[in-house]
Design a protein around this nucleic acid. Structure first.
Length: 211
DNA sequence: ATCCCGAGGG
DNA sequence: CCCTCTGGAT
């Protein structure tokens, strides 16, 4: 996709959603980090449902450690991969207390060293909590970038590099949430709703564009 | 490449 | 039944 089309691509997404935000529920940096870890291969709605009660009493790594793995497991049993996630969140909380004074580090590499936190999760936290212009390539963004031709790539890292090179300055901060929301509600995995897509004429996947 | 793994939708 | 959901560790 050419530069002018890319600018128009994001201009329309920005027009439709002037203040893009995460749909994950959280109350501080720590709970955001936990929510993002829990969101792996799970829906935001499902995660919010489970954290609704959890975050009423647990909003710090100290409180999470006190709750314990078994206690946490009881809260997140309705989320996929709950066993691994419970283990990781407790270990991650212990690491925050031990190595970062109980605070969430505003550093991509430090975040990635935490148990259960990979590149994607670290990029989300950097963008959402600390306002960094990072591009967390998840299942939605990978799909949207390849379908539309915005930033094609065989791996998530290749797509991330493509976004870093192509997303225009004014849209870099919001790009992550614009792309994910577009993928979630319009450019869906199963049945993409091209007929109501504001980007259809810019997209190489849209049948009308191909015709 | 494989495992983890429940809820919701079609 | 099948697929998908803001992945990460081995």
């Amino acid at each position: 996709m050419k530069a002018p089309a890319i600018f128009e691509f994001f201009r329309r997404l920005a027009e439709a959603n002037p203040a893009p935000e995460t749909e994950l529920a959280y109350v501080n940096d720590y709970t955001l980090l936990v929510a993002v870890v829990l969101s792996a291969q799970a829906t935001d709605i499902g995660v919010n449902k489970a954290t609704k009660r959890l975050f009423e009493t647990v909003t710090t790594p100290e409180a999470m450690v006190a709750l314990g793995e078994e206690g946490l497991r009881a809260h997140i049993r309705t989320i996929g991969l709950f066993n691994t996630k419970a283990k990781n969140v407790i270990a991650l909380s212990e690491a925050l207390i031990r190595e970062h004074g109980g605070q969430v580090p505003a550093d991509r590499d430090a975040l990635e060293r935490l148990p259960g936190v990979g590149r994607k999760t670290a990029n989300v936290v950097m963008n959402t909590a600390f306002g960094a212009e990072t591009f967390a390539v998840d299942t939605h963004i990978f799909r949207v970038c390849n379908r539309t031709g915005l930033a094609p790539g065989k791996t998530v890292l290749a797509v991330e590099r493509g976004l870093e090179k192509r997303v225009p300055k004014p849209f870099r901060l919001g790009a992550h949430h614009w792309l994910i929301l577009h993928g979630r509600y319009v450019c869906k995995a199963r049945r993409p709703e091209c007929w109501r897509c504001p980007l259809a004429d810019l997209c190489r996947f849209n049948p009308k564009t191909l015709a």
